[in-house]
Amino acid sequence: MANYAIEVNDVGMKFNLSQEKLDSLKEYMIKMLKGELKYNEFWALKNVNFKIEKGDRVGILGLNGAGKSTLLKVIAGVFKPTEGQVIRHGRLVPLLELGAGFDSQYTGAENIYLYSAVLGYSKEFVDKKFDDIVKFAELEKFIDVPIKNYSSGMKTRLGFAIATQVEPDILILDEVLSVGDAKFRKKSEAKIMSMFKSNVTVLFVSHSLDQVKRLCNKAILLDHGELIASGDIDEVAAIYEEKTS
């Protein structure tokens, strides 16, 4: 189905929450021999089914622990679902916890190449975009300084600048619109808005219902790992408000 950007079919994600963390072989053997290896099974997602059409901007709503972040990670391919499957059509760019791929001993310039490689860009592409990235992150003066001397704002700015260099087909946003100071926030929001215009499919997680309403046209609502509503933003937002009040 070429019209869909993301298809989530019967996805379930199970975690084993062991009582205590077993890190050593000896402990594991002893516990296993005693038959004391017990796991608390926990389904972070269960039977989640939905499809997202190309160009839709979908907000993911739910209380803390509803499974929003797990769902995003499953869609981004970081988690492999225990059950079901996720089909993605097109280039996906996750803006999740920016700068997680940075190496603190590396300089800003070196990290631009490293992080770009992590995101799957080509070298030629980075060569071409290098100046734009530095300029957008406003780090011209500090680009040859090791990242460990950066402030957290500088790091997220750099991460944001790198991650938004491509024109993605699918964009995953996890509260990243609160990056940096007010000035940079405005700039990053403008950048994301300009991406919206090019018919990108967006998945957006935020606790601010206003922000979701402003940015999205559709929404899904998760509760304890299950999908309880999906459809137009206003309908789903109404159900969400009912549940939270």
Binding site: D103, Q105, Y106, E110, Y113, L114, S116, A117, V118, G120, Y121, S122, K123
Partner: peptide, 20 residues
């Protein structure tokens, strides 16, 4: 092929950081 660039970057990183 897509991640060849990453492989090269990681190899470079290992060598560079070893003696930095």
């Amino acid at each position: 092929k897509k991640y060849r660039f990453l492989l090269r970057e990681l190899v470079k990183k290992g060598i560079k950081l070893k003696y930095r």
